[in-house]
């Protein structure tokens, strides 16, 4: 049974990709207003976990359970999870040639509001969201992520998040490919979005983003398992010492 207080909760999640187990029993409970970070070296399974939770068909959840606002989500398709309030900011957002950012955004918002819902406020909301993220208005009529730089794509991911206003946002390596100015703008966007009733799960290799978006809890993931959990100070230690010591601790079976 899900915890009534938790906004997002998953238990003992096992994920397979091409028949190979990548995530081996991960559990987490996130309360409204919380910011969690999952950190880990490359190949630790942290991106697979977020893709699987969003419902990517290639990331098969073999066992475990997940609840958003008390509702079980694992039998839902990706679009149903999205409409239920889950969001994944992609590490590598896909290009959709011929579909403008504005048309795509309108279609996504319409999908969330319902087919016949009024959209007369769309233009205003869209303009304001673009402005807040310092996205040039010309991007409205450019094709989604088509020829965008890494930083531009990440900004568009945050733009979508701010428009769709999910309850629970998974941010997969959102800081990768960003220069320091873009990192600031994106972080400000994330902080503006965050409030007492939603929650964030930041999936990241580096501590960099966490200087700007302050997590309440930090988890370290290695070999498909969460092996250590702590407060913001854990991220700083990882920044300083790398992941080797956690791995060593884990190998000795003395991990938290």
């Amino acid at each position: 049974m899900p915890d009534q207080k938790a906004l997002f909760e998953f238990n003992d999640i096992h994920v397979e990709v091409d028949g190979k187990q990548i995530v081996s029993g991960v559990s987490l409970k996130i309360l409204p207003g919380e910011i969690h970070a999952i950190m880990g070296p490359n190949g630790s399974g942290k991106s697979s976990l977020s893709n699987a939770l969003m419902g990517h068909p290639d990331y098969a959840i073999m066992s475990g359970e997940a609840f958003l606002d008390g509702r079980s989500i694992l039998s839902m398709s990706a679009d149903e999870r999205s409409r239920a309030g889950l969001y994944l900011a992609f590490q590598y957002p896909l290009a959709i040639p011929g579909v403008t950012v504005a048309n795509f955004m309108r279609a996504a918002l319409q999908a969330h509001r319902g087919k016949d819902a009024d959209m007369s406020d769309f233009r205003k909301l869209f303009k304001a969201a673009m402005k807040a993220l310092l996205i040039d208005p010309s991007f409205a009529t450019r094709y989604l992520n088509d020829g965008f730089s890494g930083g531009e794509k990440k900004r568009i991911e945050i733009l979508q998040m701010s428009m769709l206003n999910p309850k629970m946002a998974l941010l997969d390596e959102t800081d990768s490919g960003l220069d320091i100015d873009a990192l600031k703008i994106v972080s400000e966007g994330i902080n503006r979005f965050h409030n007492d009733s939603n929650a964030l799960l930041l999936v990241t290799h580096y501590q960099r983003l966490l200087n700007y978006v302050k997590p309440h809890h930090v988890h370290v993931m290695i070999h498909g398992r969460i092996v250590k959990t702590g407060g913001p100070e854990l991220a700083l230690k990882l920044e300083e010492l790398g992941y080797d010591w956690v791995e060593a601790e884990y190998a000795q079976g003395t991990g938290a």
Partner: peptide, 13 residues
């Protein structure tokens, strides 16, 4: 598939 997942993850059927 990747394009489809990207769009469905935004709520589109």
């Amino acid at each position: 598939e990747e394009q489809l997942f990207y769009l469905t993850s935004r709520g589109l059927t």
